[in-house]
Design a protein around this nucleic acid. Structure first.
Lengths: 199, 199
DNA sequence: GAATAGATTAACTAAATGGTTAAAAAAAAT
DNA sequence: ATTTTTTTTAACCATTTAGTTAATCTATTC
């Protein structure tokens, strides 16, 4: 790999921070992961806090604005929601530690979240609930879309965050079987949400 | 409070560990919280690891075997499930940081989980899925009960774990409104699960 | 090709942290 | 009352950790 030193540091920090969190990560470990002297991390990023913020901002933005991508197509709102569920499970499967990492760091220091919301403009978060509102528009018994969003995200994220627990209890610690289970969830979650929205 | 020194340490450790996790917690902080000298923690519990295990074991057992309580009554399986949902939301509301704490610690060191499962006997975890199996028994299109368990737990836990995020985005940081939202979820989650089980 | 600026390293510092110890204080036993 | 045991404390120790520094190495400029 011929990426620049700064990129190497950034990538190494990303891996370590996601795995161990801001407090659990060690600057020396990041330096080792990047294959260089620890002083270089400070040379390029000045402090651990700085390095962490740079990494966290990107990770958060990527995971949070994922909805946008599915928006720009000619399918119906309901179909868009189905595509979103498929894509989001794939996204988490490719980054299984990220959602828990985000939740932990926001709980640890909610101030970071505030500044990020302001920077990115406060709208993108509302997209999903607007979606659901549109789908429900012809329905008589409208449910607060926030309940649906929270239920949906819970159903998507929990099987990844609780994996060690669930895999041991319900799958006899068979990782292969659990992976299959995770992919099955695409259909399950879509069914559940549809049934609930359409009454 | 006239509880013994050992109890004071235990209670203080419980509070701090839940809030900061095993690695984030400081022995000095626990000593301060308990109002005594740090050396006493070692006098009574020998090491941080020991103290943590004592605390974690109890917390885990309490949260995990909560199902048993709702079992011993004369209502139908479906009704029992509804009672479970109500009780579990109340339990988490009274201990909002606990589920995330458990998930984090199990991810950090899955070995602890294994030893605990063996100690407590491996059955209690299966109860909930047996429940669901019974409810579905008269239904044509049976769904793997594990999918329902995971969906249910995700819907119950996520609104608490993701609170800072969700409250800010969807509730304009109004804690009061979010508390109401959490209690509304009792009805919402029950409805969702019922609709899904009954087809 | 010497001078200059930027990149990299090894060695160091100061603060924090889990754990220890020896002595003092309190309680129990004689 | 005095000894003995248990509980509690202040001071200390060894290790870890984020961050610094001065020196070296490397590339660029003149």
């Amino acid at each position: 790999m011929d990426s620049s030193t700064e990129e190497k540091i950034y990538d190494a920090a990303r891996r370590i921070f996601i795995l161990k969190g801001m407090e659990g990560a060690r600057m020396q470990e990041i330096a080792d992961e990047a294959g260089m002297n620890k002083a270089l991390l400070h040379y390029y990023f000045r402090s651990k806090e700085n390095l962490f913020k740079a990494v966290f901002k990107d990770i958060f933005a990527k995971f949070f604005s994922r909805v946008k991508g599915t928006l720009n197509s000619d399918i119906t709102a309901k179909e868009k929601l189905m595509v979103f569920i498929d894509n989001y499970i794939d996204l988490i499967a490719a980054n299984p530690y990220v959602p828990q990492f985000i939740i932990n760091e926001i709980n640890r220091d909610p101030k970071v979240l505030k500044s990020m919301m302001l920077e990115s403009g406060a709208e993108p978060q509302m997209i999903l609930s607007m979606f659901l509102n549109e789908i429900q528009s012809n329905n008589a018994s409208k449910i607060d879309p926030r309940h649906i969003v929270v239920s949906l995200l819970g159903m998507l994220i929990f099987p990844f965050a609780g994996r060690p627990l669930l895999q041991m209890i319900y799958f006899n610690d068979d990782a292969q079987a659990y992976n299959q289970f995770l992919m099955e969830r695409k259909i399950i979650v879509k069914n559940m949400i549809l049934k609930f929205i359409e009454g």
